[in-house]
Structures are given as structure tokens and as C-alpha cells.
Design a binder for these strands. Structure first.
Lengths: 346, 346
DNA sequence: TTGTATGCGTTATCAG
DNA sequence: CTGATAACGCATACAA
């Protein structure tokens, strides 16, 4: 059996409670006994048992993380390592550990979350995505368990603390950029319409078109998963149109990379024959050829602020609901060009 | 306060210990009382408190995960989401939760691991990488805490359970493939030499050259981090040589992508003027242009087997040390071509 | 400033 | 088959 607080107490000739107070660095313990107790701890190689502490405190110092279904391809998106880095940094500052949901299906994940919550395994939860009609959010609200979502909740926005970008405006700006270059036929290639981020960006795109008086066409809206296969299908659908687009707003760098390469295969030159703006500005955007013009959404900050906010909520449950908007900025590289009346071969 | 075993006991008119037995589905409880207790549980919405259970059991049902320093660029490698998926799947099957280390520096990570272990927060640990002279492995061995490493330990290989590929042979085969195509000037672009995987692959590469009677040159060995900047530097170093290579063995798809694009910028055509074999076969390999010939190391299985093995070790601490080798296979795409006496412009 | 006693929610050991 | 009761290791209210 490992060395406990009692062993330390015996060696230091004090009561267990005194040792406990030394650990908490209570101000009502004399420096002399503190020193003696610490020496005893050192001598025995004592380390506090977090489980016991958790039980006594009703607090675990761990944050639960809910990822999208791991079967889901979304998981492969470079977005996740980067939010994780942000979360991890903030969590570490406040001495929180991180626990991940495991589970392949939505049902399994919900069960995992229920175990985290009811089993008192975590003090709070971060949702790393926001989907339409999400059971997990509803459950967490019902239990009034501390949680924050990264992205915008689909329902009850005012009641749920979340960290998001202004995706509506970001997409609007991206579209306007293309419009400003003279493009009239701008298509939108988004991820799953189940994700709120897709919806917001789509709305921003629509609004930009409407404001510019450019007609909005259903055929120009493509929804695919955030992935490469998606990119390829998107391209073929779009190019088979009688009036194919000359510019694309793409929801994600990874998808844009797929599109880029498919276009390259077909022999369509970017940006000469097709302009592209994508989102996220992960490493891939730089590495792609040509390098992608991409909206930087500051993924690290998304994670960092989410974790920071959650720890505040845990510490002070009366904290009001918050909406934190992380700024974005378009990084112009080499996938956008002024529209010229070049015929896009179909 | 949440509903506890006592509340259930009261409603069901039994002792708390009986409720506990029902939860464990003990065979020495009559079906009738089981039913009554279960109804009470249902009625109150009872869920067991894992923390309390952990304290009583001395077992947490959580596995600790040690990632490389999150400041480290390695973290961005698509390798990680995929091992995680494997680990997560196996862990979920055995009802284990996953806890991640947070910490930016090596020192912080070691401290985090010590907290996991001494604080009894986890039942076992998986190391997601293997580095030379690793303090964490030494610590875990000293504590004789259950752990498995993904990759090959640098020291005490026989005493440490690990899940690895035969990287030596994989690299040898990749090199032989290039040699077989007639290339004589084959360079090796590896990741950090601090990683054991790099060392193994380098040795395999060397052996292939030696066996083929091709001279081995120091200038052909480049070590960079597993990333894109690395790719670019590698290319410029290699091409500035008086006898630049005509083929490359690259440690990682992400790096290979960087190299591919740098070559493209310079105007060197792959595979006509430069052949490339890389490792990991992640999504990127498919998406790259041209698609990468890459050694599939079965990342998912690496994670899956690691978690599965660890849970066995936890259940039965007398399990012998194991070495599990996950098979690899080369996926031929379009980055390799027979060597022709084309002058590579320098 | 320090010690004593009790509780946190379970499981496990005895009895019965 | 079931019920008391004592751990598990720590924190804290209350005493001293």
C-alpha cells in the first residue's frame, strides 16, 4: 500500500489533519511544523491520493472532453490537435487534467458523458463541436452541469456559454473578397449541414451574394463531409453545371486541399481558372500548392478560452452565461485572382 | 447532493451493501430483491459514483495517455488522431476512460505523469512515442507501474511491453524498392534523431544500401522535425549537393507533402526527376499530388493493440512482458519511377 | 496553532 | 441470501 497522510503524520509527530493542512498550505500552521511535516513527506516520498481528495472535496480537477464520434472522419481534421493544444495549455495552467470521451456512435458518446457527469468523474465538460439537435447539450442543460461548447449552440444560445468565431461575418467577408475580385459565379462547399458552423457560414455567404445583388443558386451549394472524398465529389458536381462557378468558398482547408488536387488533375489552373478561399488556416493551407488563401479562425484561442472559461465557471457557479467571440482574419495567399472571362473547360 | 447507494437502499428496503451487490450483479442475491433494488435505482435515477468506487477498489478504470510535448510540432502529425482512435476503440470495449497528459515541456509532462501515478488517478499508462533516453519510461519502470509504449523503447527493450512496427525492415524494403528501380543516389529524410523510430528506419535504410553495395553518404542523411518547414530545408540541402539524390526515403507523409510542394516550386517533377517513398500512409498520402507511395504502418492497430495489451496487464499483473509487432505494407501510388539518366537541375 | 471526530460513496469482511 | 461495520485516504467542523 502506498504511503498515506497517516504515515507522514506518524513520522512528523502530528495529527493527520495537520498534514492535510500543510498540503493545503493553510496559514494557521506554524512554519516550524510545516517544515517538519514537509521533511517527513520528502523522506517517505509521499504523494497525495487524488481519488481520496476528490471524494472528500466533491471535485476531481479534471475536465471532460467530448469529441465527435471517432468513427466520424471529422476526427482526422487538423482542427482537433490544435484546439486540444489550446485547451491543454489553459487546463494545465489551472492544474486540471483532461479526460476524453470514448465511443464510436452518438449513443455511446452520450452514455460516456452520462458516466462522466453522474459518476462525478469530471468537474466540467467542453464540447469540441456543435451540431444541430444535439442530445448531449440537452442532457448537460437538464443536469445543469458546467459545460462550454466550442462553436455556436443550435438552440438556447443565450443560455449556453460558448466560444465561437463570428462565422457568419467571416464567410460574408470571404465571399465579398471573391465578389470584389469580379467573380459572379461563386459556389459554397460546406461541411455537414448538421454542424452549426456550416449553417452560419452558409448564411454569411448568402448574405454577401444578396447584398451584392448576385443571384443565389441552389446548385452552387454543396455539402460534404469535411474531407477529401468530399472535395472530389464537390468538384465534379460543380463542374458538370451548365454555368460552373469561377470561385469557391470552401469550409475547410483539408477539403480545399482535396479540391485543389482534383482541379489539378482535371487540368484547371488555380487561381487562373478558379479562385478559392477556405477556412481554418491550418498548416495544410501553407503547404498546399498553390498556398491557400484561408480565413484564420484562431483555433488555439478557441480551445484556450473555452478551457479558461470553464475553469471559471467551475470555481464560481454563479458566473453568468457568456458568449466569447474569437476574432478571425483572412490570410491572403495564392488561390484568389481577379475574374477574367476565361472559359472554364467542363 | 446526488442520489447515493443509501437512498436506493432506503427505498428498496434493503441494506446499502445489498445494493452494492446488485450493482456488481452478485450471484448470491435473490432475483426478487435484485428486481426491487433495480426498480428503486431506476426510480431515483441512481448512478454509481466512480470516485467513491475507485477509492474502495483501488482501481480507477482510466488509462493515462502521454503525448509528446504539446509545444512540439509533432503533435500536429495526423499520426496522433489515428492512434487515439485505435486506443479509444479498445479502451471503450473494456470500459476504460482516457486521460491525457497536459504540459508543454518535458519536465511538465513528467510531473503530470508522476501525478497520474502517485495520485492513483490512472490504472495504467500508454506512451504514444518513444524517444532516446526517456525520463518517463525510467520513472515508470522504477515504480513498476503498468505501461506500454507505442514504438520501440530505446533501452531495456526486453523488459518493456511495447507495440511497434518492424521499422527496420519497413525502411529496408522501401529503400530496396527504390534501388530496384535503378536508383543509386538515394537520400534519407528522417524526423528527429531523438525518436527511436527514426533510428530504426535509418538503420534499415543503411542496411539496404550496404547489401546492395551502394555507397552510403553522410550528406544524404537529413534529420528534421516531422514537418513542413523541415521538408523545405531538406530539399534545399539535398539539391545543393554536387551529386544530388534521385530518390528519397522520407520518414513521414506530412514531411513528404512539404517536400513534394517544394520540389514543385523549384520545377522538379516527381516522379520523373525525383522518386519518393514515405511512411504512415495517412489521408494526406492519398490527397497529395502526385499521390504518395507510402508504407502503411497500420496506425489504428498500433493504438488498438497497445490499449488492449495494457488492459490485460492491469487485469493480470503477472502477464509477461510482450513485444507486439504490427505488420506494415507498402502502398504504391505515383511518386516512384525507374531511374533514367536525367540530369537533375541543381 | 493543532488534534479529534466525522463524512465523502463504495466495496468487502464478517456475522447471522 | 442479507445486514452491520469497517476500511479506502483525505478534508473539515468543531474542540482544545
Amino acid at each position: 500500500m502506498a504511503v498515506t497522510i497517516k504515515d507522514v503524520a506518524k513520522i512528523a509527530n502530528v495529527a493527520p489533519s495537520t498534514v492535510s493542512r500543510v498540503i493545503a498550505n493553510s496559514s494557521r500552521i506554524s512554519e516550524r511544523t510545516k517544515k517538519r511535516v514537509r521533511e517527513a513527506m520528502e523522506e517517505l516520498g509521499y504523494h497525495p491520493n487524488f481519488i481520496a481528495r476528490s471524494l472528500a472535496n466533491q471535485s476531481t480537477q479534471v475536465i471532460g472532453l467530448v469529441m465527435p464520434a471517432s468513427a466520424d472522419k471529422t476526427f482526422q481534421n487538423p482542427f482537433f490537435p490544435e484546439v486540444l493544444r489550446g485547451i491543454s495549455t489553459a487546463a494545465h495552467e489551472k492544474q486540471y487534467a483532461l479526460q476524453m470521451s470514448t465511443g464510436e456512435t452518438e449513443r455511446e458518446i452520450l452514455e460516456g458523458v452520462m458516466q462522466m457527469v453522474q459518476g462525478r468523474r469530471v468537474d466540467g465538460i467542453i464540447l469540441l463541436y456543435s451540431a444541430v439537435d444535439d442530445k448531449i447539450i440537452k442532457y448537460l442543460q437538464k443536469e445543469s452541469f458546467p459545460f462550454v461548447v466550442i462553436g455556436k449552440p443550435y438552440e438556447n444560445v443565450e443560455e449556453i456559454t460558448h466560444v465561437d468565431n463570428d462565422n457568419y461575418r467571416a464567410a460574408k467577408e470571404a465571399t465579398e473578397h471573391l465578389l470584389g475580385l469580379g467573380h459572379k459565379r461563386v459556389a459554397f462547399v460546406g461541411g455537414s449541414i448538421q454542424l452549426v458552423v456550416t449553417i452560419d457560414r452558409l448564411l454569411g455567404y448568402e448574405n454577401a451574394l444578396r447584398t451584392a445583388g448576385v443571384p443565389y443558386k441552389d446548385e452552387y451549394i454543396i455539402h460534404e463531409e469535411f474531407l477529401k472524398e468530399g472535395g472530389q465529389e464537390a468538384v465534379s458536381e460543380l463542374l458538370s453545371l451548365s454555368e460552373p462557378p469561377t470561385a469557391l468558398v470552401v469550409a475547410d482547408d483539408l477539403m480545399a486541399l482535396g479540391i485543389l488536387n482534383t482541379l489539378h488533375d482535371i487540368g484547371i489552373v488555380v487561381p487562373d481558372q478558379m479562385s478559392i478561399v477556405s477556412f481554418n488556416n491550418v498548416l495544410l493551407a501553407e503547404v498546399a500548392r498553390p498556398p491557400l488563401t484561408s480565413v484564420d479562425i484562431n483555433i488555439f484561442q478557441l480551445g484556450f478560452q473555452a478551457a479558461k472559461t470553464l475553469t471559471q465557471m467551475i470555481k464560481d457557479p454563479t458566473e453568468p452565461t457568456k458568449r466569447i467571440i474569437i476574432p478571425h482574419s483572412m490570410v491572403k495567399r495564392h488561390t484568389c485572382k481577379e475574374f477574367e472571362a476565361v472559359v472554364v473547360k467542363s
